[in-house]
Amino acid sequence: MTLRRALLSATALFALASAARAEGELHLYIWADAIAPELIAKFEAETGTKVTVDAYNSNEDLLTKLQAGSSGYDIVMPSQHFVRIMIDEGLLENIGASTLPAFAQVDPKWQKQWWDDTGDYSIPFAYGTAGFTVNRDQYQGPVDSWKVFFEPGPELQGKIALLSYPDEVVGAAELYLGVPFCSEDPAEMKKVLDLLMAQKPYVAAYTSDNIENRIGGGEVAAHFWWDGNSMKTRANDGAHIEYAMPKEGLVGWLDSLAVPKGATNLDNAKAFIDFLSTPENATIQYNYYGHASPVALEKDKMKYTPENAPELFPTVKVEFSRACSPAAQDLVTKVWTQLLQ
């Protein structure tokens, strides 16, 4: 414990030393390409604040960085279950989120949910679902059930790709089998493994990179994917693909803006959160990012509507990933390790 404390205080000293130079700065650590560059430029022009952006590709990367202490970041963008974990682990700053002007813009159905039930730490930023996309040049059949994906018929055999990590994939398998998320029952998780094992001979790849090309170009015919990415590839790049609406439901995610504990530019961080949440800016952001927005938008300027972007407006049940206990997480890891054996 003492060594840890010594290390922490040493890093804190470094942080203090750099804080002296931090006037008018804002350091973002967010999902790759998550905020419209146009908005960052606009914020810099309006306030004179110098904004730097670093990106991560998984919630775990973010969590690891914050756990190491004194990350030097002022704003982070964790998904719902990681907001819960970070609050419980004391990694987020209480910014009195529900008193910020931004909070009033948030749709009441996303306010003070289980991941931030006091509404002190986070402002919802974007949400969506994880499901699967099919290439319509390669596959013409129905996409109304996860059965199509997990128990593929001859048309899809050998032409399926999943992600390289278990998170949402195991969640989707659980939805299909009716197993609750974060189950601690080995017998139930064994069923998940059996399902994925039976699917494996027909899987071309387990990889999370370069999905646009793989599914858009027809390298595979069905790919586990996210709603907004699938929509943008179809709408903007003209790929002949369709995002499935399986009747068993989709795996939901919601990313929030939050401030890590000990952030040096607290006021700038709050100002930026409010800035992003005004209807005008949130609409610019929505049109850039292509994921559903939990804050109020300018309806007439929305680029993506239920008509031209049905991916963003799910017609089936959406089940949000939860923060699993270590026992439940171990079962998920075990399923994945044995699957890739």
Binding site: S58, T64, Q329, D330, T333, W336
Partner: peptide
């Protein structure tokens, strides 16, 4: 996997 999603 162990350092990331596995959290071990």
């Amino acid at each position: 996997t162990q350092f990331g999603g596995g959290r071990n």
